[in-house]
Write a protein that binds this DNA or RNA. Sequence first.
DNA 1: TATTGTTATACTCTATAACTATA
DNA 2: TATAGTTATAGAGTATAACAATA
Lengths: 152, 152
Amino acid sequence: MPQEPAHITDVDTRYLESLIGYNARRAALVSMELFLPNMAEFDLRPVEFSVLSLVNHNPGITSRQLCTALSILPPNLVGLVNRVEKRGLLQRQPHPHDGRAQGLHLTAAGSKFMREAERAATALEQQVASALSASEAQTLMRLLRKVYRRAD
Amino acid sequence: MPQEPAHITDVDTRYLESLIGYNARRAALVSMELFLPNMAEFDLRPVEFSVLSLVNHNPGITSRQLCTALSILPPNLVGLVNRVEKRGLLQRQPHPHDGRAQGLHLTAAGSKFMREAERAATALEQQVASALSASEAQTLMRLLRKVYRRAD
DNA sequence: TATTGTTATACTCTATAACTATA
DNA sequence: TATAGTTATAGAGTATAACAATA
């Protein structure tokens, strides 16, 4: 056991690395760091990508549903939707059954855009998972979902 | 295959859930949500806990080393260290070999405080990992480290 | 010349309160 | 009365530039 050296060379991170939250946060930050340059041509932040992807796969989804699915607070979604709407990627449409709500839909340009963006994100995934085998990557995601899906 | 329903009931998140970054971020957010109430008595934010824990296990560590180990930018660490120093948990001391640097050390009160805080964090870990077996938790952390340790 | 720590500051992200229109 | 969307705003977190002291 070292005698509490006053001059540290290698930092002992073993305790922090025994905590799931610490490890998940570090991995998430690295993933987002890789996202930015690799997705630069799309000018999308991670959350914007997530929103557009959910609209892509759930046409007619409401803001409220997006907020619940992605843990975004409603006031913070407004500006985000406004931006991608101004870029011509997304449209608000009247909701068929609820006059308060609006269904969100990708425009034709938005659909094409998201096809390419999701292809790029899937390619980027190879970099994020470069140290993992295919089966390790699947295991990792399955275990992460067990952590954040509290009620399943 | 559904005909693009305009009224979504269950949100299809399958594509996003195929991305490591998305899953890691969701799990990190849930972990931090659990951290706040469970660690409330210590009045520590996750990053403050990480800093104090590294000082605890690496007495004499410098700010620069902390920044590197935790991916914090130096200007953002200053206020954080000031706060825990004002709380009497941490002390800056002259560095033995480098006049520019300062070694960070826990005070006696800080040591006692961090013993209890780390015990609480370890107990909290049982909640974070409640859906995982012990071996699944170990696997999860091992795979997460493979993601964020780009050069190993 | 490079590095440590610091200040000042800007920018982004996240959170809260209150309002409207509709259910 | 409750909910969807919105506005305004506050707070937390993260970023860059520039400086003094030391290597």
